[in-house]
Design a protein around this nucleic acid. Structure first.
Lengths: 146, 146
DNA sequence: TTATTTGCAAAGGCTTTGCAGCAAA
DNA sequence: TTTGCTGCAAAGCCTTTGCAAATAA
């Protein structure tokens, strides 16, 4: 989503367009694969010498999530991490050892969730499917410690 | 697991058997389907007029989880909830509206996770598969509000 | 008796909130 | 001008930790 679209988006929802909101959205989009936490977003924006308060980061993330632009993952460190919500059903395999996140997308993700859902009439929300475990690399290290 | 087995279990691992540890295990086992949090366990034990400290509850839960007797679920309220670890792979469908937890067990759970896992060589840990969404009852309420 | 556990109180980490000053519309 | 946003500081929660007293072995 570019700046003009974002402006329009906020307008439609009766939110003000601000430099801080744009900066938060941009840093999450730019570091998409990193699934940044609030603190990491805050720090990234300090480095870009944009003085933004941590409270504003939290408020902005919550708003963007509620409005559907971002989705949140709870990692094992108990902090919330964010990614752009592209609307596609997908899951995350999260390594409990090293914290690596492997994204599972496409038909495999969809079919797997449908199977788990079964006949429960449960409406799974986007971006909320996380499996915790040990990734391949960490398994190898367990088997053959350095 | 009965008291004698628990005593033996602790003995083998060089832990002391204490009334507090037994009480915590028993309350989690008794309220199995409720997936209690540390605070709920603490309160349940106060009601049973057993003076246990909240710190002891936390320490005990962590120990029992590490030793494989309990497993932990992170719910949307960001607090940890506990259940007896029976070793079976299973998942939870957790309603974001009402907090209800639907357990998914058996071959459906296993096949679904295998599918999601795919060829990633990712070793899923027990009791760690949670899908967030809206349950049937809350969906109905959304469609036809009271 | 010795090693372990308990539990109070304090601290830690993430997140939210109150509010005065500031910016958007 | 009016409404909404920012950001500091303080507070709120859940959880962990330090340590002296109490308990298990």
């Amino acid at each position: 989503m570019d700046t003009v679209d974002f402006k329009e988006f906020l307008n439609e929802k009766n939110f003000c367009f601000t430099a801080q909101r744009l900066a938060v959205l941009n840093v999450v989009a730019k570091e998409e694969n990193k699934h940044l936490s609030a603190t990491e977003i805050y720090e990234a924006l300090q480095e870009e010498h944009q003085g933004i308060g941590i409270a504003t980061v939290y408020k902005t993330l919550r708003m963007l999530e509620q409005e559907g632009l971002l989705s949140k993952i709870e990692l094992l460190d108990k902090t919330a991490h964010y990614e752009i919500n592209d609307g596609a059903i997908h899951g995350h395999l999260i390594c409990s050892k090293c914290g690596k996140i492997i994204e599972i997308r496409g038909s495999r993700a969809r079919r797997s969730l449908e199977l788990l859902q079964g006949d429960s009439n449960f409406a799974i929300q986007q971006g909320s499917v996380n499996l915790y475990g040990i990734c391949e690399d960490c398994l190898r290290l367990q088997a053959y410690p350095v």
